[in-house]
Amino acid sequence: MNRYGKIAMGIMLAGLAGCQSSGKSGAKDTQVDPEMDRCGASEYQQFVGKPLSSVDSLRFEHPVRAIPYNSAVTMDFNLNRLNFMGDAQGNITRAYCG
């Protein structure tokens, strides 16, 4: 193979390596650290993008707070508490423990 052929082969192999998938098929397959997910926030990720009021009718095992946009909240860190963070439109942007 001549010099240009080797360069072209190297470029093609590098391009194909970039097309490989990471093997992650979805959010359900991701590993969750049980220590950081004491409140079960991983089970409520489907609420992200929905109105903050959509969690009002749910029952929870742990303490919960729905935090509207620009609200004052205490800064105490409680891994057993589930938090739903809202945006300016009143939609949930994040569900997390803390």
Rank of each mutant, 00 (worst) to 15 (best):
I11A: 11
P68K: 01
A8R: 14
C19L: 14
G23M: 02
V64F: 00
F47P: 00
E61C: 04
M1S: 10
V55Y: 02
Q89H: 09
G18W: 08
N70K: 15
G26L: 06
C19V: 12
I67T: 07
S21G: 13
M75W: 08
L79T: 11
G86M: 05
N70S: 15
R38A: 10
S22E: 13
G18S: 14
Y69N: 13
G18C: 13
G10I: 10
S42D: 10
E61Y: 15
L13Q: 07
M85Q: 13
G90Q: 06
G5L: 10
A41G: 04
M85K: 12
S57D: 11
P51F: 00
G90N: 02
G15S: 10
D29R: 05
A72K: 13
N78K: 10
M36A: 12
L79H: 03
A95L: 01
A66P: 00
S54G: 03
G90H: 03
M12R: 02
N2F: 03
R94W: 04
F84N: 02
S21W: 03
A95S: 02
N78G: 02
S22V: 15
S42L: 01
Q20S: 12
K28C: 11
G49M: 08
Q46Y: 09
I92W: 05
A41R: 03
N78I: 07
R3D: 08
C97M: 06
K50Q: 11
C19H: 04
D56Y: 09
T30L: 15
V64D: 01
A88Q: 14
Y4G: 11
C39K: 03
V55D: 01
L13R: 04
M1C: 08
Q45D: 00
G49K: 09
S22W: 15
R94L: 12
K24T: 14
N2A: 04
C39P: 03
M9A: 12
D56E: 11
K6W: 13
M12F: 09
E43F: 01
P63S: 04
A41D: 01
T30Q: 14
L13P: 00
N80H: 07
P63L: 06
Q46W: 09
T93S: 04
M75L: 15
P34Y: 09
A88K: 14
G23N: 07
S54I: 03
S22I: 15
Y44E: 01
C97K: 03
T30A: 13
S54D: 08
L82I: 07
C39W: 00
G26E: 04
Y44H: 10
R94V: 09
K24C: 11
I7Q: 03
